[in-house]
Design a protein around this nucleic acid. Sequence first.
DNA 1: TCGCCATAGGTAAATGATCGACATATGGCG
DNA 2: CGCCATATGTCGATCATTTACCTATGGCGA
Lengths: 115, 115
Amino acid sequence: MTDRQLREPTRLVLTALADAPRHGYAIIQEVLAISGGRTRLSTGTLYTALDRLLHEGAVRIEREEVVDSRLRRTFALTEQGQAVLAEEARRLRLAAAEAERRLTVARLRPNGATA
Amino acid sequence: MTDRQLREPTRLVLTALADAPRHGYAIIQEVLAISGGRTRLSTGTLYTALDRLLHEGAVRIEREEVVDSRLRRTFALTEQGQAVLAEEARRLRLAAAEAERRLTVARLRPNGATA
DNA sequence: TCGCCATAGGTAAATGATCGACATATGGCG
DNA sequence: CGCCATATGTCGATCATTTACCTATGGCGA
């Protein structure tokens, strides 16, 4: 249940919501900031991802306000969503460490010999 | 160029090749070991991924042998492939750290208040 | 010896998340 | 008056992955 493999944009959405609830547009900006301007989340990706995450119970609607006669929905991580992100972060940390360890091994023994 | 976002299976293939060249079936087993038995790479995923990585120049064919009257191709990371994986590992390490940091912030301030 | 499993390498169709383009609407700035 | 930032969404295309299929050898157990 908790061990599905998240895609990059989905993970960034959960990360953007990890410290505080945010509405859609704020998530886009937060992801832009987190990624150092590299990942520009499109609205198509965001709202389909949010629908999916709502459906799966990783995200819930925190509140709905009307600002300037327009609806604004604020999303928050559920406890399950926190667990999913924590598990994913742990997996990524281990994956990064493993990749870096192996690359170091290759650097110490630059010939591609297996034996 | 070097900053494409890799999917999980693709990344695991590169990681499996990071320390030494391997042939297809050995990559599948190595990925199984790396992921602690969690990720069982199907041949469909593997060979399409390898074709793509060969095309992109991240992987090259190290050697082709005939073992038991069957062809066995051994794949190796190119220098570009090493750079791609190193960059990806760095990004994952940072992404994991950021997610864990934010989750800690949420734990310290459990009310979802933004203000 | 027959069938199955591990080994080994592959293809084809379906799934599913993402991307790019489009649509709508307000408030503010020049 | 037009454009940009803000804000929320839909739809079709794209593309990696998944699932299911196929071939083939060598070895092991019934």
